[in-house]
């Protein structure tokens, strides 16, 4: 069986510095795959490679078995891979509704529309006509995710969902996201909050200095194994 989205020994970097080294992973339909690791472990770069926003120096990306490594970012989004980027990156001069509508730009058919997105993320309801620049961090993140859903993706790549948000806001956000998980959508999640990650992920890949060093399910991995992988061996031997 071919995976929904698969990366095969991806190597990528910026100039001479290498951010990702020979990482392979695959996400299946309806699965939440979490990438964990310290800052600079290469998680965001890997997501950008999967989305086509960053060109890898080696390795291939396959979507439903088809090689999409050379398919550009906007075309890849039209084929069902959508990245919700770090920092939300809302269109600041557009309203929330307009931000969502831009997400429908890829014209893929599917269950998501402004109405269904608001249903899934109820906090957006009263905000629709507000300007995106007037929102709080949590609200912005909800719009960014909703906008990504509007592309009707098969795979949603979520980068640093809770970065910079208050714990209570994160709770609300994840409560809403419960309605988004499943339904055949494959999700790759980058999240700093390990508790949260263990709670929602079906499978976890730990990255350290650009390498995938550990993979397993939340139940099969011990806390020590993960912190080990998170910080590397020197720290773990304290």
């Amino acid at each position: 069986m071919t995976a929904l989205l698969a990366a095969e020994s991806i190597t990528a970097g910026y100039g001479d510095s290498r951010a990702v080294s020979e990482v392979s992973l695959a996400v299946e339909r309806g699965e939440v795959l979490a990438l964990v690791g310290a800052n600079g472990a290469g998680k965001s770069t890997l997501l950008r490679v999967l989305a086509g926003a960053h060109r890898p120096t080696a390795g291939r990306v396959h979507l439903r078995g088809e090689d999409v490594t050379d398919v550009r970012d906007f075309e890849r989004s039209r084929r069902g891979v959508c990245l919700v980027p770090e920092g939300r990156r809302l269109f600041a001069s557009l309203t929330v509704r307009e931000n969502l509508e831009v997400g429908a730009g890829s014209r893929r058919a599917g269950r998501w529309s402004v109405d269904t997105v608001v249903e899934a993320l109820p906090i957006l309801g009263p905000l629709l006509d507000r300007n995106a620049s007037q929102l709080s961090g949590g609200q912005q993140q909800a719009v960014a995710i909703g906008r990504g859903l509007m592309t009707n993706p098969d795979v949603l790549l979520l980068d640093e969902v809770s970065l910079g948000l208050a714990p209570i806001v994160i709770d609300e956000l994840y409560a809403s996201l419960a309605g988004v998980w499943g339904g055949g959508l494959g999700i790759v999640l980058v999240e700093q909050d390990l508790e949260r990650t263990l709670a929602v992920a079906d499978r976890i890949v730990c990255m350290l200095e650009g390498h995938a060093v550990l993979e397993g399910t939340p139940t099969s991995l011990t806390r020590e194994q993960i912190t080990d992988a998170y910080f590397g061996h020197e720290v773990a031997s304290w």
Partner: peptide, 20 residues
């Protein structure tokens, strides 16, 4: 709408499937 979005952030527009 796409023009205004492109003025704000053309890379994110691409991530949403629009050829900027």
């Amino acid at each position: 709408r796409h023009m205004r979005a492109a003025a704000d952030d053309s890379e994110t527009l691409r991530l949403l499937g629009v050829d900027h």
